[in-house]
């Protein structure tokens, strides 16, 4: 695999995937179709699992993983640089423009309408993460499930941990790193159910 082509393929993904890491997935499936000798759909499924269970932005994790399978360590680095290059260029241009026009009425009004939308999108992200934390086995339910069945598969230890962490962080300021490490340890000790 030519490193230049690899860079260009990921540059394209970085340019057209809008709205966060998961938006890169359809493009990666396209890539798998184009280069089946380097990338199979099974590898993509593994990649999603690995990307979600390692730190870092999901899009970057995917690019590194796929790039590594194409061309080793260099491939991983080149694919990641390709992916982030369009964002860097675009954001630098916007940042320059914002410097200039941040006091303009149009920009202020646009943000006024944009912020409640972003708040709603963050709510959606919360709903999906709460679902995976509290209902890790939801995919095992049949199509015609009812409320009783949903209650039956709630991961009680996760709910308790959530309530405790939530209450404690209201009262005391705890560094997010500590909250994450503590939860990882508790998850291992109490054998929290993985997502099925």
């Amino acid at each position: 695999m030519n490193l230049f082509i690899l860079f260009f393929e990921f540059f394209k993904i970085g340019l057209f995937a809008i709205g966060g890491g998961m938006a890169t997935l359809p493009f990666l499936y396209d890539l798998a179709g184009k280069y089946p000798e380097f990338l199979s759909e099974q590898m993509l499924a593994d990649m999603i699992a690995v990307s979600e269970s390692t730190p870092g932005p999901i899009g970057v994790n995917c690019a590194t993983y796929v790039g590594y399978n194409f061309a080793g360590i260099f491939g991983g680095v080149i694919a990641t640089l390709g992916l982030i290059m369009p964002s860097i260029i675009i954001i630098l241009i916007i940042a320059k423009a914002l410097d200039k026009y941040s006091e303009s009425r149009f920009v202020k009004n646009a943000f006024y309408g944009l912020r409640p939308v972003v708040a709603s999108l963050v709510c959606c992200a919360l709903v999906s993460i709460l679902k995976s934390a509290f209902l890790p086995r939801i995919s095992t339910l049949s199509e015609s499930f009812n409320i009783k069945q949903i209650i039956g598969i709630i991961e009680i230890p996760a709910v308790i941990l959530f309530a405790v962490l939530f209450a404690v962080t209201r009262k005391v300021k705890i560094h997010p790193i500590f909250i994450i490490l503590l939860s990882a340890v508790i998850g291992v000790i109490f054998k929290f159910q993985p997502v099925l």
């Binding site: 979600e52 269970s53 912020r115 409640p116 939308v117 972003v118 708040a119 963050v122 709510c123 992200a125 919360l126 993460i129 709460l130 995976s132 934390a133 890790p136 991961e155 996760a158 941990l161 959530f162 962490l165 939530f166 962080t169 997010p176 909250i179 994450i180 503590l182 939860s183 990882a184 340890v185 508790i186 998850g187 291992v188 109490f190 054998k191 929290f192 159910q193 993985p194 997502v195």
Partner: peptide, 27 residues
């Protein structure tokens, strides 16, 4: 897998916090 099921709970708490902030600043 156990560790990441735990981390998902931590992330829920952290994102919950983010939601409150976004609503306060946007609504």
């Amino acid at each position: 897998q156990y560790a990441f099921s735990g981390i998902r709970v931590a992330v829920s708490v952290l994102v919950f916090d983010a939601v409150i902030k976004f609503i306060k600043s946007g609504v």
